[in-house]
């Protein structure tokens, strides 16, 4: 099935749901592997928030579609090419700096997004967005403070954080390509302030990679979905 029309309300919901689910899946990979117990718990909370948003959006998208598809059908039954998430969120965790920079970039995108959508005249979406906006504010605080700590910590942490910014920068123009210009301004303001305080530099290389919103992904997503969807595909039509 080719990617759906991006203007379609359902596919917009799916795109945001996919973002949140894929990132939750990535963050879940940290559990029992974080640098300190408190970080383990925090990453768990953030992952659960993203998962909660994804579930609400999938359910809502399924209701709008009206074909009787529930959250699991949409999350675990779609092929890679139908996934509309941003390339950023499917990137591997890497080290903790990579994970926190990825989180910062994403949180700074979701901040104006949920604020905007919480004023939507579609009441279900507005409700989901209002809750997500609160959670995102906390995620942004968490990721910002860690990027600052790592950027302005030790020599090693600075190097790792700078590497992370360098490696993930090429996935950032996609964050706001389909949305309003005001999102971009807000994103640049939020990220710029954090990178400044963290003493980190924006790469000069202008190269940008996009495609996630249209179903063209990096090679990482296939593996992520293979693992995530394995049970549903091995044991179809069963209740769990």
């Amino acid at each position: 099935m080719p990617p759906q029309d991006p203007d379609d309300r359902v596919s917009a919901l799916l795109a945001h749901a996919d973002d949140n689910l894929v990132l939750a899946q990535r963050l879940g990979e940290w559990i029992a592997s974080a640098p300190e117990l408190e970080i383990d718990i925090a990453l768990g909370n953030i992952a659960l928030d993203h998962l909660g948003v994804a579930r609400a959006l999938y359910t809502h998208a399924g209701d709008l579609q009206g074909e009787g598809r529930g959250e699991d059908d949409l999350a675990l039954g779609r092929e890679e090419r139908d996934y509309l998430n941003l390339l950023l969120v499917e990137q591997p965790n890497g080290d903790f700096a990579r994970t926190m920079v990825r989180q910062l970039f994403f949180d700074a995108y979701q901040t104006p997004l949920w604020e905007d959508l919480s004023a939507s005249d579609a009441p279900v979406l507005a409700g989901i967005a209002a809750k997500a906006a609160k959670e995102t504010a906390y995620h942004l605080q968490y990721s910002s403070s860690w990027v600052i700590r790592l950027g302005d910590g030790t020599e090693e942490s600075h190097r790792r954080a700078q590497d992370a910014v360098g490696a993930l920068w090429r996935f950032t123009s996609e964050l706001t390509e389909d949305d309003r210009a005001s999102y971009r301004d807000e994103w640049e303001r939020l990220v710029g302030a954090v990178l400044g305080e963290a003493k980190l530099e924006v790469p000069e290389d202008p190269y940008q990679r996009t495609g996630g919103r249209h179903g063209y992904h990096t090679e990482h997503l296939g593996y992520l979905l293979a693992e995530m969807q394995w049970m549903q595909r091995s044991y179809p039509e069963m209740k769990w």
């Binding site: 117990l37 408190e38 925090a42 605080q141 403070s145 700590r149």
Partner: peptide
């Protein structure tokens, strides 16, 4: 109680650990 490097992260951790 919990461990943290600075007051800001102590508060963040407290929120995550004790008010889940």
């Amino acid at each position: 109680s919990l461990h943290a490097a600075d007051p800001e992260s102590a508060l963040q951790n407290a929120r995550d650990v004790y008010t889940r």
